[in-house]
């Protein structure tokens, strides 16, 4: 089949089920924006927390009690970023400038039977961890809903166009071409959703950065596009599309 004809068929598909794809576009965009924002917060909260605490306490570094650590752990502690480590006190003390990975250090310490703590800022760190957990949980659940609604969108479309697909096949169009037709159609739809979601989340992040700078005096610069995240989501949707289409094809042929 000529490329021009394939493109014509792809654009023709947009005329059918207009209400459905407009609504699904709006809904998936909303969901995508929410997922992006949740994931951005999840990844950027440690950095934000680091800036927040340095500003609030007006301090370049924070002292932590290193319970359970001995001189043999000096290399490990140095790799974590601890400086001026003093083992001569009842409990070793070390100073940390960057708090971005502090929860990971605490978690590792707990697994090893040790503890890293600072009475002054532990409360704030817990709040930040709580917020991080909340955003992660919401983001994951929204992602599942998004994938579910994308899958529904594929199935509705293919169900509606089932007879058309059968007609094309009987007219001699290969299975591969038909699949390509719908891959391309859904890929274009998905790209539209992605770009709109990226623009909307960009605007939201811009407004949020402004709010954080003016109200919270934080210059955080939340990223507009978490690139790896987008790439993973695109890949997942393509895999889902492929699986759904093959399943729909099988079901359609079984009915015949």
């Amino acid at each position: 089949m000529k490329t021009r004809d394939i493109l014509r068929l792809i654009t023709n598909e947009a005329k059918y089920g207009k209400r459905e794809w407009v609504l699904s576009y709006m809904m998936q965009t909303l969901l995508m924006v929410c997922v992006l924002i949740c994931m951005v917060f999840f990844t950027r909260l440690p950095k934000t927390g680091d800036i927040l605490l340095h500003a609030a306490f007006d301090s370049e570094e924070f002292g932590f009690q290193l319970s359970g650590y001995t001189r043999s752990d000096l290399d490990e502690l140095t790799k974590m970023g601890f400086e001026d480590i003093n083992f001569d006190m009842r409990e070793p003390v070390g100073y940390l400038k960057n708090l971005e990975h502090i929860w990971w250090y605490k978690f590792r310490a707990v697994i090893q039977g040790n503890d890293i703590w600072n009475q002054e800022i532990d409360g704030y760190l817990m709040i930040l961890l709580f917020c991080r957990i909340v955003f992660a949980v919401i983001g994951i659940l929204l992602w599942v809903i998004l994938l579910n609604s994308v899958s529904n969108s594929f199935r509705i479309k293919l169900k509606e166009r089932e007879r058309f697909v059968q007609m094309m096949y009987r007219l001699g169009c290969t299975k591969r071409t038909i699949f390509f037709l719908y891959y391309a159609f859904f890929a274009l739809r998905a790209l539209l959703v992605f770009f709109t979601a990226v623009v909307l989340s960009g605007i939201t992040m811009h407004l949020l950065n402004g709010y954080m700078e003016n109200v919270m005096y934080l210059k955080v610069d939340m990223p507009i596009i978490p690139g790896v995240l987008i790439a993973v989501m695109v890949l997942l949707q393509l895999m889902l599309m492929r699986r759904t289409m093959r399943k729909a094809w099988r079901e359609s042929n079984e009915e015949d």
């Binding site: 909303l30 929204l142 609604s149």
Partner: peptide, 17 residues
């Protein structure tokens, strides 16, 4: 609130399906 709105519309989608 936005996410719940989107989630409920996903439910509408399911009903259409």
């Amino acid at each position: 609130s936005v996410a719940i709105l989107a989630a409920l519309s996903a439910a509408g989608y399911l009903l259409a399906f």
